[in-house]
Write a protein that binds this DNA or RNA. Sequence first.
DNA 1: TAGATTGTTAATCGATTAACAATC
DNA 2: TAGATTGTTAATCGATTAACAATC
Lengths: 212, 212
Amino acid sequence: MAKSKGRVSDAVMRRMPKYYRYLKEMRDDGIERISSRELSDKMGLTASQIRQDFNSFGGFGQQGYGYNVNELYEEIQKILGLDKTYNCIVIGAGNLGQALTNYSGFEREGFHVMALFDINPRLIGMSIRDIPILDIEDIEGFLDQHRVDIAAICAPKDAAQSIADDLIKYGVRGIWNFAPTDVTSSSEVVIENVHLSDNLHTISFRMGGYSL
Amino acid sequence: MAKSKGRVSDAVMRRMPKYYRYLKEMRDDGIERISSRELSDKMGLTASQIRQDFNSFGGFGQQGYGYNVNELYEEIQKILGLDKTYNCIVIGAGNLGQALTNYSGFEREGFHVMALFDINPRLIGMSIRDIPILDIEDIEGFLDQHRVDIAAICAPKDAAQSIADDLIKYGVRGIWNFAPTDVTSSSEVVIENVHLSDNLHTISFRMGGYSL
DNA sequence: TAGATTGTTAATCGATTAACAATC
DNA sequence: TAGATTGTTAATCGATTAACAATC
């Protein structure tokens, strides 16, 4: 049973989805149990770290046995909030917005895309996997009518912050921002700024001979 | 002048592209100088950390003055290897592969996309911004003919590792993997595994009430 | 010069690793 | 039971923050 919600370090939090991924894989492969040692080999972490990580949520293992893969998988699923469903929208129906919408994994995990929004009249009215592309002008009306939990922003840099402010005003609780600028907010909303180019820059950095 | 290539911690390395982004912005806004204190306010870091970070590459500032924005920008550009150009290919011409190819920022920063590769006959022969989509079958011939520095893998999970092995065998030195599995290699190649769904999972995690 | 702000050393904090008693 | 492996405490390591002398 998970501990009552407490402080979890950023480092631990960022590792949880990786555990989830590896456990899902093992579960699909029919592996029933795993020790922290075996898991550490697979994932490139230390066994000690794995046990510490899991124990920040409560003990999920059993001495002398290890962890039951399926049980641990389901616990982490709950921890990550993947036992719930989320109403999502995508702002910006360009390649990236379409890529996110088309990625069936999200739907499977409970992230349901209700609509895309765009400013481009040639895209408005079209649909992706039966999900309509609506006029960005109509977004406030849409948010009035529907509960939206998470919005992915795939819009140009200069529009990102004002879109985010609007979304937050209308009750969106999670912002997944792909615009190449950091979106911020003073409210309780959860914001994740993804910078694909930052990522690419770490590749060229390391290719330049700086070692870690 | 940058110190000779030494050990740089992962944490510092991951912050460099962010500095680059903020400095570019300031430079474009015509800001000439900035102190670590001002920069810390903008970026949400501490002034002390910023000075430490820059000093792992050598001092770029001046006592009593701060940092010259343009100079610092250019130093970090060099550190990140963005003063060079890179020949790139994209494996998988679906939405994500197209999104990366279309993102003009990469071209501007010296990441030149030479070709996309796909298995889908309906895509092969088409082109994105005049960049051809080629048959994945022809990739070895292509790599024999052209120097390719970086490859983005936007292929399905099960194909990712064997594609990567192939690319590495033919001299590709950087792998930017978007397939939902961790690609590994025993060689010197630089690998960056991007997991967008891991990212989304941290959003649902935090929306579930776990605080950091 | 006086004021400002860096570069750098020292102190603190937090995260990772090691060790081992508890226990399945 | 004996062996294995967790949960957890203690030790270590590294990263961040604080402090301040150097110096523009």
